[in-house]
Simulated assay, not measured.
Amino acid sequence: MTGPQGADDIDWEALRAVARDAMSHAYAPYSGYPVGVAALVDDGRTVSGCNVENASYGLGLCAECGLVSELQRTGGGRLTHFTCVDGDGEILVPCGRCRQLLYEFGGPGLLLETPKGIVPLAEMLPQAFTPKHLDK
């Protein structure tokens, strides 16, 4: 079985290894739930991030926040392929808030690695709120 266009020529295990390394730097003393993410950028770069918790729980930063911050810090661009892992290094699906964040920087065609296979973000976040909604 082949995945969505562009999914089969990606070394997802190598991308997952970057996410696992990022996860190893997570700061999760309150939840005990470290998360790491990694993504490919349309110019060939790889960006990553980890969650950073805070004693004031609402101020914690998800791994996806760190990833898009690194994306912008290192030159911007569009995310093309994304994976997320938990503290055991297993594939994890990003929450709804994070899907919206990823949509802003990758769009509907961003390919996500999920426990059920590779799927475009459009399937994970149908009818997303986009910048076009602000033009109305």
Results as ranks from 00 to 15, higher is better:
Ala63Gly: 06
Glu123Asp: 15
Asp9Leu: 10
Glu53Phe: 03
Arg73Thr: 07
Thr2Met: 04
Ser48Gln: 08
Ser56Glu: 14
Tyr30Asp: 09
Gly89His: 04
Asp86Ser: 10
Ser69Ile: 10
Ala26Tyr: 01
Leu92Tyr: 11
Cys95Glu: 12
Tyr33Ser: 11
Gly106Glu: 04
Leu111Lys: 01
Gly117Phe: 00
Ala122Asp: 13
Lys136His: 11
Ala38Leu: 05
Asp42Arg: 00
Asp11Gln: 05
Thr114Glu: 08
Leu71Ile: 05
Val41Met: 02
Cys84Thr: 02
Leu121Trp: 08
Gly106Met: 13
Val47Gln: 04
Ala7Lys: 09
Ile118Met: 05
Gly6Asp: 05
His133Asp: 14
Gly49Phe: 07
Gly66Arg: 06
Leu59Cys: 05
Ser24Met: 06
Phe82Met: 02
Gly87Cys: 10
Gly32Asn: 06
Ala7Asp: 13
Pro94Ala: 08
Ser56Thr: 15
Leu125Arg: 11
Asn54Tyr: 04
Tyr33Cys: 08
Leu112Gln: 01
Asp86Trp: 09
Gly6Val: 08
Leu112Tyr: 03
Ala28Ile: 09
Cys95Pro: 11
Glu104Leu: 15
Ala19Cys: 12
Leu134Trp: 06
Glu70Ser: 08
Ser69Asn: 09
Ala22Trp: 03
Arg78Asp: 00
Cys50Ile: 04
Leu110Thr: 02
Pro94Asp: 03
Ala122Thr: 11
Asp11Lys: 01
Gln100Ile: 11
Cys84Lys: 13
Thr114Gln: 05
Leu40Ala: 07
Gly36Ser: 10
Val18Ile: 15
Thr83His: 02
Pro29Lys: 05
Cys98Met: 10
Phe105Leu: 09
Leu61His: 06
Gly60Asp: 10
Leu111Glu: 05
Asn54Phe: 03
Leu40Pro: 04
Pro131His: 04
Leu71Cys: 01
Val41Gln: 08
Lys116Ser: 12
Ser48Cys: 13
Gln127Leu: 09
Thr2Arg: 14
Arg78Cys: 03
Pro126Val: 07
Gly96Glu: 12
Arg97Asp: 03
Lys116Ile: 01
Ala55Arg: 04
Ser56Met: 14
Pro4Ala: 08
Gly106Asp: 02
Val93Leu: 14
Ala26Thr: 11
Ala128Met: 09
Val35Cys: 13
Gly36Phe: 03
Asp88Leu: 09
Val68Ile: 15
Ala14Asn: 06
Ser31Ile: 05
Leu102Tyr: 02
Leu112Trp: 00
Pro34Glu: 09
Ala14Gln: 12
Gly76Phe: 04
Leu102Trp: 04
Glu13Cys: 02
Asp21Ile: 10
Ser69Cys: 12
Ala39Val: 14
His81Gln: 11
Ile10Cys: 06
Ala38Glu: 05
Cys98Tyr: 02
Thr130Ser: 14
Leu110Ile: 01
Ala14Leu: 09
Leu121Lys: 11
Leu111Pro: 11
Cys84Leu: 13
Gly77Ile: 08
Val37Gln: 02
Val18Tyr: 00
Tyr103Pro: 08
Asp9Ser: 15
Gln5Asp: 15
Met1Glu: 11
Leu61Lys: 14
Ala55Asp: 11
Phe105Thr: 10
Val41Ile: 07
Glu123Trp: 10
Tyr30Gly: 04
Asp8Met: 03
Val68Ala: 03
Gln100Asp: 07
Gln72Thr: 14
Asp135Lys: 12
